[in-house]
Amino acid sequence: MKYAFFPGCVSKGACPELYQSVMQVYPQLGIDLEEMATASCTGAGVLQEKDEKLGDVLNARTFALAEQRGLPIMTICSTCQGVMSQANHRLTTQPAYLQEVNGMLQEEGLSYRGNTTIKHFLWILLEDVGEDVLRQRITKPLTGLRAAPFYGCYIQRPTEALGFEEHPDRGKSLERIIEILGAEVVDFPGKTRCCGFPILTINKINSLSMVATHTQDAKSHGADIMVTPCPLCHLNLDGMQSQAANQHNTSINLPILHLPQLLGLAMGMEQKVLGLNRNLISATKALQKIGVG
């Protein structure tokens, strides 16, 4: 199972612990990665506010680079995944548009034929690595840990572009992983809602209200930790949680883990190896409860 690895800007920037943790876990899962060092940012939906076609051209270039290597793309960010899936959907369902975009790639010596698959690490774990292999790699099941899933909008909607018709289980994939790792799923209404990060610079009060609502809601449902496949959600839910708590005159202290961090813990890895010391809200107390890490 070899993939063209698209780490995304945030795992190389403000969330280095995500990159660190995925680097620790992937070799033990039968996965081989070739990092796409020359790929550009997806635009994250922000560049698309200004010019959607420009975003599609940049992403078509990334898809063409992977296609040249004959590899599917692996992402580790819900936002990268969603933006790429949407771009790929537009390109592969509108032949005239693909031709127009290819016209712009031509002078770079590239052409995209529409054959690149883009998969989030979360989906790869279930669809490619498989439950059996995952279970074999778990040496420290997270028994007793109550984990709330938090997806990130872009890996939930729009379902048409994300292949939910072909893979209906993707909508519940995070819950499935939590169960496989031996933890208990804490279901709560906010798990597929917005973390507020996209409006942090625009309307901080609303952004922090979303952080407070979802983290408090998960806690009130009994969560010890929250786990997310999206580093942008992590930046808000972890990074802005203390400010969100202040805004709502409360304390929350819900540790937010990146998906590969939770996986690594169940694979018997130390907290520091997985970069958990870099999460702003410490998970140590929650993990001590179950004697892990």
């Binding site: 909008c153 909607r157 379902t159 809602r193 917005c194 507020g196 996209p198 409006i199 625009i202 609303n206």
Partner: peptide, 12 residues
Amino acid sequence: MWDCTRCMECIQ
């Protein structure tokens, strides 16, 4: 218009 989070719930 700038207060939308781009969460895509409305599209869905």
